[in-house]
Lab assay of single mutants.
Amino acid sequence: NQASVVANQLIPINTALTLVMMRSEVVTPVGIPAEDIPRLVGMQVNRAVPLGTTLMPDMVKGYA
C-alpha cells in the first residue's frame, strides 16, 4: 500500500510546509504520495490542516 502525507501537527492556513510538519502513513482515502514530501517543502497550505489529517492535492497551493 502506498503511504500518503499526513499532518504531524496543526498546520495553520497559509503556512509554508517544513519536513517536521509532515509524516508518511498508509491511510484511506489516499492523499498526496509520501514520495512528494521533498517537493512539498516550502509550499503553502490554503486551509488549516488539523493534526493527523491526510494532505490532499487541493490543500496545497501550486501542488495540483
Rank of each mutant, 00 (worst) to 15 (best):
N1E: 15
N1G: 15
N1L: 11
N1R: 01
Q2P: 15
Q2D: 15
Q2I: 09
Q2V: 12
Q2N: 14
A3L: 09
A3Y: 06
A3W: 02
A3F: 13
A3T: 14
S4D: 00
S4Q: 05
S4P: 01
S4G: 15
S4I: 02
S4Y: 12
S4F: 06
S4A: 12
V5Y: 00
V5K: 00
V5P: 02
V5D: 00
V5W: 01
V6I: 13
V6H: 06
V6E: 03
A7L: 09
A7C: 03
A7I: 12
A7K: 00
A7S: 08
N8A: 15
N8Y: 14
N8H: 07
Q9H: 12
Q9R: 04
Q9D: 14
Q9I: 14
Q9E: 12
Q9T: 07
L10E: 09
L10W: 07
L10D: 12
L10Q: 09
L10Y: 05
I11G: 00
I11T: 02
I11R: 00
I11D: 00
P12D: 14
P12W: 05
P12C: 07
P12Y: 04
P12N: 05
P12T: 06
P12R: 03
I13H: 09
I13S: 08
I13M: 07
I13P: 05
N14L: 06
N14C: 06
N14V: 04
N14S: 08
N14F: 06
T15Y: 06
T15S: 07
T15A: 06
T15F: 04
T15W: 06
A16F: 13
A16T: 08
A16C: 05
L17G: 01
L17T: 01
L17Q: 00
L17Y: 00
L17A: 01
L17W: 00
T18R: 08
T18Y: 03
T18A: 03
T18D: 07
L19Q: 10
L19H: 13
L19D: 05
L19Y: 13
L19I: 07
V20C: 07
V20D: 12
V20L: 08
V20G: 13
V20Q: 14
V20K: 13
V20F: 09
M21N: 13
M21V: 07
M21F: 12
M21L: 15
M21G: 04
M21H: 11
M21D: 10
M22A: 02
M22S: 01
M22R: 00
R23E: 06
R23A: 09
R23D: 10
R23M: 04
R23L: 12
R23K: 14
R23T: 13
S24E: 14
S24K: 06
S24V: 10
S24L: 10
S24D: 10
S24M: 10
S24Y: 07
E25M: 03
E25D: 15
E25S: 06
E25C: 04
E25I: 02
E25L: 03
E25N: 08
V26C: 10
V26A: 11
V26I: 14
V26L: 14
V26P: 13
V26H: 06
V27C: 04
V27W: 03
T28C: 15
T28Q: 08
T28W: 03
T28E: 15
T28V: 11
P29H: 11
P29L: 15
P29V: 09
V30K: 02
V30N: 07
V30I: 12
V30F: 09
V30W: 03
G31K: 03
G31Y: 03
G31A: 10
G31L: 01
I32D: 00
I32R: 00
P33T: 08
P33Q: 09
P33R: 11
A34M: 09
A34D: 14
A34E: 15
A34V: 05
A34H: 12
A34C: 15
E35W: 02
E35C: 15
E35K: 02
E35V: 04
E35P: 12
D36F: 04
D36H: 06
D36V: 07
D36I: 15
I37K: 03
I37D: 00
I37S: 14
I37A: 15
I37T: 10
I37P: 01
P38K: 08
P38M: 06
P38N: 14
P38G: 05
P38H: 12
R39G: 12
R39T: 04
R39A: 07
R39M: 10
R39H: 07
R39P: 03
R39C: 03
L40A: 02
L40E: 00
V41A: 07
V41S: 13
G42A: 11
G42C: 06
G42H: 07
G42D: 10
G42M: 12
G42I: 01
M43E: 07
M43S: 05
M43V: 07
Q44F: 14
Q44P: 09
Q44Y: 10
V45P: 05
V45K: 00
V45S: 11
V45L: 07
V45M: 14
V45R: 00
N46H: 12
N46Y: 04
R47F: 08
R47I: 10
R47S: 13
R47W: 07
R47E: 12
R47D: 14
A48T: 15
A48V: 09
A48L: 05
A48H: 12
A48K: 07
V49T: 07
V49P: 01
V49Q: 03
P50F: 11
P50L: 14
L51W: 14
L51V: 07
L51K: 07
L51N: 05
L51A: 12
G52A: 14
G52T: 13
G52E: 12
G52C: 05
G52W: 08
G52M: 14
G52N: 11
T53M: 12
T53S: 09
T53I: 13
T54W: 02
T54Q: 04
T54Y: 05
T54H: 11
L55V: 09
L55C: 03
L55N: 00
L55F: 07
L55H: 00
M56R: 11
M56Y: 11
M56C: 15
M56A: 11
M56I: 11
P57Q: 11
P57K: 12
P57D: 03
P57M: 07
P57N: 11
P57A: 13
P57C: 13
P57V: 06
P57G: 06
D58H: 10
D58K: 04
D58I: 09
M59N: 08
M59F: 15
M59R: 04
V60Y: 01
V60G: 00
V60A: 01
V60L: 08
V60D: 01
V60I: 13
K61P: 12
K61D: 07
K61S: 13
K61H: 10
K61A: 05
K61C: 14
G62M: 09
G62C: 15
Y63C: 04
Y63D: 04
Y63H: 08
Y63A: 14
A64M: 14
A64Q: 15
A64L: 10
A64H: 14
